[in-house]
Design a protein around this nucleic acid. Structure first.
Length: 999
DNA sequence: GTCCGACCGTA
DNA sequence: TTACGGTCGGACG
């Protein structure tokens, strides 16, 4: 900075208070966010940046900065503990604007300056002194009298609200003393708003008069006895020390250490799109237009920015944590914690307030609002490279009683994954009992440097040895008094279990979201961060790369890994704060704690055990299938008169419906002729040879590619077993899903397919036990719709489909034709699926009118079912979700769609969900109870798989007779004692060497 | 390389 | 007519 330059220093904190009161209340239109002070601030900045010359300042700035108070605690509190102690909390509507003004500053591409322990005024004093020494002129944008002591021939002030410059004569005119005597004047008068004591009875007029007479404060105090007025004389003598203290308090520090050097305040050009994005976000249309014109930017093309709102810790009212069953214990002090600096440091977690809305809903709302706006500060994340630091973090986690936890590994498959490191997130209560700061750290353990080493390089230096870190981590993860919070806990649980750690006391944010929001979008971390935190976390592929050039996580640079991993733990802990109170507010805590969380270790154990598949059987089957398919291919090509890709529905359609001229059945939604099995079956039934061959070929190639060829690839290299992955939060209804490989769709319907089941075998000395619920969904339907005939039929143990047929068609159960029973069975399934005449007609290959008659007849016989269906649809329309008998919710937000087919689809799904979902809840309960029941019976039987209504166990041969009754009993009584079903549950169980024979 | 549609295996 | 996941072909870049 040099002679001729001109520095503008904006007192950001001062401005906001003034603008807030001076400008009428103004809210963002879309959501009521108060923005009056921000609007004034933005208009003022824009004016100063573009035409300061036309204001009373009369010059254009070359340097510019906006200065803020960091917090209410400064060095002055060390001088006088009552300093600013009577400050009241700012108005509610002002609070979010503190943060917004900082964002505005950055959007204007201006330095945003603050420093812990100092007031904005001290920073302004220091910059002003330095600029003046460099020969520059300074304008302080403020009208605060506390800053008038800084005015000199080269330093002036500017009241932007009144467009009035304040120079030396202005100070004298207003206060009766020149700027250099303002300190003494303030020392005498004191300041009630800042709690600066001063001398009682001395106001500005008297002070000015005394200073005129005695010159300065020290002289006055030395000659106080000469003062004629008795009261004044006594007051000054009695309060001399107070006056000296006050002088210290009001004297600005012109030598504050600076983080941003003076020269970096040089004014840069405006970033039009960035500024417009901010202005659009706040809906400042006039200014948006002006800025667009001045910067030659197409405002239409700019998306509004995401503008997080900071809630300053200082700005919090008297919130108190009145406790929450499983919430974090309020630990007021954390000895070693050093809160991070910067924006994230001011993020404070709101707890339940006595004063405001002290209900579960109020807390849930407050948390959601707070975290929707709390900014992320990656600079506050740290890497832990030594045991001592790790110990400190673990101690802090213990103090807090709550820690976000995440593992980083080399694979999505928890059974194959190798641990690379882990991250922790902690909410501190260090100096703010009203809230908490979240900080996060990554602990790299096995990161490698692959530089110039074909073997993959050695370990990166300065990582805590794996064993040492794990022994410390074990203490934390197995400590029941510390709640661990993870996203998709089953994964981390299994990875840690493989390292000899059995986690205790945990929550899973993914499962919380699933309980709250099944049907409302995904439950992965990225979705949840977007939905609840308004934040997009660093993408995994941005860290590891993608495709051919991708790295496993252990080759990721540790700084990058820290940014990614620490953020994940941070996000997880924030999500917990948002979601946990919502469970309580919506009455879903039971569902989460009984049907979700306890299933995590159960499924982890099942996945860890795996199941043996006989690779020889699969290999032999693959050969047979290949031969069969090859023979069919020859036939197909011969019949078609040419070779083509049979597996291509497009090419196949051209052959069948083009070249061969077969009548096309239905079309797919893209307009292609459908070549589905049902179409081909119809053609085959009409006497055509080719379609039959296609159907057969499809079956063989399907079995080969999906099962016999693929399954051996899933055999684990060490355990030699296949470990599926069960997803807990994948379905809308509450069912599990299975993948990698999917063991819930192993063939059974055809003889060819069943051969694949013979490859799933028990290990030597054991047998597989398959136990499945009989007609569980129809039983659930009989329960929820309370249908007397169905209840009676299940109580009597009669054939339910035959009973249905008998009721509908008046045919005796004895000697019933199989076609009649088949139709009744299709209707029963149709009911569960939310029947339509169209669907039933399709299923039974009958006319739609005939299917409609069946349905009508069915409802006449079972009016309770129609009531159930109508009531369920009405409930779903009203609430947007339906419930299972255990209170699990499945959401159907599109049930109010104006699209009739979409609406109808959602109605059918919402009829089905309570039935399918209640059955899913029942088997979940059975699974949770199974491990302790087997243990109590001293059985070593191990649960391996779940297939919706079936559980598969591996049981020692000598144990089978004792194990089967235990298994059956747990399953049949699974609803108890939470619920007493109106129909009995029935379970069939068999033991055999392979799955085909056991089922 | 990544995505989507068609198809098909299970309950 | 419900709920899933896997494989393939084909189109996109």
């Amino acid at each position: 900075m040099k002679n001729g330059d001109h520095l503008f220093l904006v007192d950001g904190s001062g401005f906001i208070f003034r603008a807030f009161h001076a400008i009428p209340p103004l809210n963002r239109k879309s959501d009521g966010l108060p923005v009056n002070a921000v609007a004034g601030f933005c208009n003022m900045l824009w004016k100063l940046l573009t035409d300061a010359r036309d204001t009373s300042v009369g010059v254009t700035p070359t340097h510019f900065a906006v200065i803020f108070d960091y917090s209410s605690k400064t060095f002055r509190n060390g001088l006088y503990d009552q300093y600013k102690a009577n400050r009241t909390a700012p108005p509610e509507d002002l609070i979010p604007q503190f943060g917004l003004i900082r964002h505005a500053t950055r959007a204007f591409n201006l330095p945003c300056i603050e420093k812990e322990g100092y007031e904005a005024d001290d920073l302004i004093a220091t910059y002003a002194r330095l600029a003046e020494e460099a020969g520059a002129d300074v304008t302080i944008i403020s009208s605060d009298k506390d800053l008038m002591q800084l005015v000199t021939p080269k330093v002036s002030m500017y009241d932007s609200m009144k467009d009035k410059q304040i120079t030396i004569p202005d100070v004298i005119e207003k206060w009766g003393v020149p700027p250099e005597k303002m300190i003494d004047l303030q020392a005498m008068t004191g300041d009630s708003t800042d709690n600066v004591p001063g001398i009682p009875g001395i106001g500005p007029k008297t002070a000015a008069q005394l200073l005129e007479e005695y010159g300065d404060l020290d002289t006055l105090l030395g000659r106080a006895g000469e003062i004629k007025q008795q009261k004044r004389r006594e007051a000054i003598i009695a309060n001399a020390d107070m006056a000296r203290l006050s002088r210290k308090l009001v004297t600005l520090d012109k030598h504050t250490p600076l983080d941003v050097p003076l020269d970096e305040l040089r004014l840069d050009s405006q970033d039009g799109p960035r500024l417009i994005a901010f202005l659009k976000a706040l809906e400042f249309t006039t200014l948006t237009r002006r800025v667009a014109a001045a910067t030659d930017t197409d405002a239409e093309a700019v998306e509004p920015a995401y503008v997080p709102v900071e809630w300053g810790a200082q700005a919090h009212g008297p919130d108190l944590d009145v406790g929450e069953a499983a919430g974090p214990p309020p630990t007021p002090q954390s000895s070693t914690a050093t809160p991070p600096r910067g924006d994230a440091a001011r993020a404070a977690v709101p707890f339940l307030s006595r004063g405001r809305d002290a209900t579960p809903e109020g807390l849930a709302r407050a948390r959601a609002e707070f975290f929707a706006k709390a900014p992320f500060d990656h600079s506050s994340y740290v890497t832990i490279r030594d045991p001592a630091t790790l110990d400190r973090w673990i101690a802090d986690a213990r103090d807090a009683g709550l820690v976000g936890f995440d593992t980083e590994t080399t694979s999505l498959d928890a059974m194959q994954a190798e641990l690379c490191g882990f991250s922790l997130a902690i909410a501190d209560y260090a100096d703010d009992p009203l809230g908490s700061r979240i900080r996060a750290a990554y602990v790299p353990l096995t990161h490698k440097n692959g530089v110039g080493d074909l073997l993959g390089g050695g370990l990166v230096e300065n990582q805590i040895p794996l064993r040492e870190a794990l022994s410390r981590l074990k203490e934390l993860l197995e400590d029941p008094s510390v709640l661990k919070v993870a996203q998709n806990l089953k994964y981390d649980y299994l990875v840690m279990k493989r390292h000899g750690i059995t986690m205790q006391s945990y929550d899973d944010t993914m499962l919380m979201s699933y309980v709250i929001d099944a049907g409302n979008g995904a439950h992965g971390m990225d979705s949840l961060a977007e939905r609840w935190l308004g934040h997009t976390p660093i993408a995994y592929k941005d860290v590891t790369g993608t495709g051919r050039s991708s790295l496993t996580f252990d080759f990721v640079d540790i700084d990058r890994a820290t940014a990614y991993a620490a953020e994940d733990a941070d996000v997880t802990l924030r999500l917990w704060h948002v979601l946990k109170p919502q469970l309580a507010a919506k009455g879903l805590t039971r569902v989460y704690e009984r049907l979700e969380r306890p299933l995590v270790p159960v499924l982890a154990h099942m996945e860890e055990r795996g199941i043996t598949v006989d690779r020889q059987i699969l290999s032999r089957l693959s050969g047979e299938l290949a031969q069969g398919a090859a023979a069919l291919e020859d036939e197909i090509y011969r019949l078609a008169g040419e070779t083509f890709t049979i597996g291509s529905p497009k090419q196949l359609g051209d052959i069948l419906f083009g070249k061969m001229g077969f009548p096309g059945g239905s079309k797919t939604k893209t307009g292609q002729w459908s070549t589905s099995a049902s179409v081909l079956e119809d053609l085959a039934a009409a006497g055509h040879e080719l379609p039959r061959k296609i159907v057969d070929w499809r079956q063989l190639t399907k079995l080969k590619s999906t099962y016999t060829d693929a399954l051996p690839g899933f055999v684990h290299p060490e355990t030699k077993r296949v470990h599926t992955c069960f997803a807990l939060a994948a379905t809308t209804t509450g069912r599990l899903s299975s993948s990698d490989p999917n063991l819930q769709n192993i063939p059974i319907r055809t003889a060819e397919g069943r051969k694949i089941r013979t490859a799933f075998v028990a290990s030597p000395g054991n047998k597989l036990v398959s136990a499945d619920y009989s007609q569980i969904e129809l039983r659930v339907l009989a329960h929820v719709a309370d249908i007397p005939q169905l209840r009676q039929a299940f109580a009597d143990g009669v054939d339910i489909h035959a009973m249905t047929a008998s009721e509908m068609f008046g045919v005796p159960v004895e000697g019933m034709p199989s076609e009649i029973r088949r139709r009744a069975k299709a209707i029963n399934f149709g009911i569960i699926y939310g029947i339509s005449a169209f669907g039933l007609a399709n299923q039974l290959s009958i006319e739609r009118s005939e299917a409609g008659d069946y349905i009508k007849k069915y409802f006449e016989r079972f009016p309770g079912i129609r009531d159930y269906m109508e009531n369920t649809k009405a409930f779903a329309r009203e609430h947007g979700y339906v419930e299972t008998i255990f209170g699990r919710r499945a959401h159907y937000p599109d049930i109010r769609s104006s699209n009739p087919s979409m609406r109808a689809f959602n109605e059918r799904a919402s009829i089905n969900a309570p039935i399918q979902g209640s059955a899913a809840d029942i088997i979940r309960r059975a699974m949770v109870k199974m491990e302790p029941a087997l243990e109590a019976a001293k059985l070593s039987a191990r649960m391996l798989l779940q297939v919706h209504d079936e559980l598969i166990f591996e049981v020692e041969e000598g144990e089978i007779e004792r194990a089967v009754p235990v298994i059956v009993s747990v399953m049949e009584n699974a609803a108890m004692p939470a619920l007493s079903m109106k129909v009995p549950l029935k379970v069939d169980a068999r033991a055999a060497h392979n799955w085909d024979e056991a089922h």
